[in-house]
Design a protein around this nucleic acid. Sequence first.
DNA 1: GTAGAAAGCGGGGTAAAGTCCGCTTATGCT
DNA 2: AGCATAAGCGGACTTTACCCCGCTTTCTAC
Lengths: 208, 208
Amino acid sequence: MPFGRPRAERVDAARNRLQLLQVAREMIAEHGVEKVTMDGLAERAGLGKGTVFRRFGTRAGIFQALVDEDDRAFQQAVMGGPPPLGPGADPVRRLIAYGRARIAFLLDHHAIVRAALDRNQPVPVGEHNLSRVHIRMLLGQARQHGQLDLADLDSLAVQLTAALEGPILLYLGMTPPVPADPTPASVPLADSWQTIIERLFRTPSHSC
Amino acid sequence: MPFGRPRAERVDAARNRLQLLQVAREMIAEHGVEKVTMDGLAERAGLGKGTVFRRFGTRAGIFQALVDEDDRAFQQAVMGGPPPLGPGADPVRRLIAYGRARIAFLLDHHAIVRAALDRNQPVPVGEHNLSRVHIRMLLGQARQHGQLDLADLDSLAVQLTAALEGPILLYLGMTPPVPADPTPASVPLADSWQTIIERLFRTPSHSC
DNA sequence: GTAGAAAGCGGGGTAAAGTCCGCTTATGCT
DNA sequence: AGCATAAGCGGACTTTACCCCGCTTTCTAC
């Protein structure tokens, strides 16, 4: 048996992880994100505090795990679902569709998503940040298709990611003015995102 | 004497505030942002802990005050200095100049700026956020000059602010790859910002 | 100059995040 | 099945942000 693998998660550990996530959701539903404390969570789950920290490392880690769970379906839709969100459509269309969907997702989960921020550690820019990686990939495709001629797509991807996620993570109030109508088209940020993308790609006036 | 005014700051309070800011800077210079604790700060300044909290409200408040101090010169340059950063130049030029200057400022002060983030309270979007207000104003001017025809400049301003500040606040590592060369032109984020602004404003290909 | 009131001050108290380490339990191998 | 080992567990302990409230200082009106 190969030894490079670091041994699977123990079943009791997995059970406890699921239980903690479940209890955390209940506590959030009942009293809001602010009231979820590590002691409270451990006690209500019938576990020790050390267990909670072993599993999630930090308070923010719990909310990151919660977001990851909810994110899974979203990620599947992006990577294997129907166009224009999924593969197959023009990169520019996909960028617009991705932005709209992502903004809707973030607005929908804004409480958890904000709680997942850790003021000590920056948002990981490399691994789990699907937005940045995906935007970067679509920019690269667009360049190959001759729709964009820029050297430094990495910086651009970071800035576009910030434009997409920053408003919800950073600037909007705790209870963002999410309209009663959840139609993606009605979210001003989504329209604005589309504008930025469209203008970024539209060709300059050329002499004729 | 008019009574609408809420009475000026007492001189002892002002003295203590300055002293606390000064001591905070020393502590940051010696041991870094992380090691600045409220108790430590109070003790080293020869004051009570309660005083520190009365002045700054929260730990993040100290760093916000520090940033505000450093920001003052920057703000003056923006609001009354020479073009293109100051008034007088074309709004698009000013947007580009502002972005470059702001990125340089944020990179320069990234430790304090990040410590000024409060995970509980969002970044104030209304008052002290010069970036958003300034960008919004320049967008409005550009629209009046016929360089832009969009309805919702508010959302756009928020997103551009996020694109500008988000990378440093959110995504870059604690020690961002600030090049040894502090020439603004050498910062990739600044070039990328300029690209976004230029393309946002460039006119579409018109028939001739 | 003085008095009254508002602002400021101090430091002990609370709550919550995160650490440590000795004990327990699952797991893979023989 | 039995054993060796690594992973998991718990809860006391430490650190730190933030609150509270009785006392002191400064300011203003007269």
